[in-house]
Design a protein around this nucleic acid. Sequence first.
DNA 1: TTTAATTTTGTAATGATTACAAATATAAAA
DNA 2: TTTTATATTTGTAATCATTACAAAATTAAA
Lengths: 146, 146
Amino acid sequence: MEEGSNPFFMQTHSEILQNKGIRPSVQRVRILKFLMHSKEHPTVEMIFNALLPEMPSLSRTTVYNTVELFKEVGLVQVLDFGRGVLRYDGDLSPHSHFECEKCGAVYDLDIKPQEISKKMPRGFKVHQTYFYVFGLCSQCKKNEKN
Amino acid sequence: MEEGSNPFFMQTHSEILQNKGIRPSVQRVRILKFLMHSKEHPTVEMIFNALLPEMPSLSRTTVYNTVELFKEVGLVQVLDFGRGVLRYDGDLSPHSHFECEKCGAVYDLDIKPQEISKKMPRGFKVHQTYFYVFGLCSQCKKNEKN
DNA sequence: TTTAATTTTGTAATGATTACAAATATAAAA
DNA sequence: TTTTATATTTGTAATCATTACAAAATTAAA
């Protein structure tokens, strides 16, 4: 990560939490670290399974609580691809998402959704914008031809 | 509806179903009719409650089955605003959606999501694109100021 | 320390959706 | 028609992610 694009440059994960007014408990720091380094837009289950080996007492409920807390203070973006499971993205820079309908992988797209939200009806206030693309990733598209 | 914009111009709802290879049962015709005339992007529950008075034997399961069938043959678009309930849109023209975070109403936006999907990684195949905007509708924005 | 407040944890509820099988309705064959 | 086969509808039971809740554990404050 380069300096310019990282709003949290030079801060520890603990400091990031403190700056948001959140007590940096062990669980919260680990979950934040995981979210900020993950590229896979993990679900609660994925976070839970990834951290369980290093913190055997971790509870699924803690992950749910934490992820909800992070959402409220703007430390994660919640993604809903309509699969009945929510995914979480620690990358807060403006971008969009692609989900492969075959393998389920989620890719980042360099498309800024907020730039699209022109043409809003008069008087409306925009808080959030999401742009989702579904299809086949290059690997699955290649495999399909065989 | 003007002729040019309606791909089903001059067809009865029954004929629309037949053209898709679906037997036009009473339930299916009613549900399709409701979906195509509704502007509120109804949930299964809303469809069920709206039709129950005129068809007291209607089952929620039938609505679920039918809506799933319609999705598969492309008679409805499924919308997921991340509220744990799916909404259905019988308007198949390219457009986007706005959900008011206060009152929950869903509005159509005159933004064509597929035009946005440039900049796709090489080799990817796009099947579907969704653009969701969240915020306050003009009424709720007005009320908030008081 | 002792006390108070916060956080974590496990279990139990919730609620939309799906699975499934029996009942009903429709179409095809005789 | 009647009979038979097929498709559809219905109601109930299961599923499963998420939420509610209260007890246990941890941390901070007095």
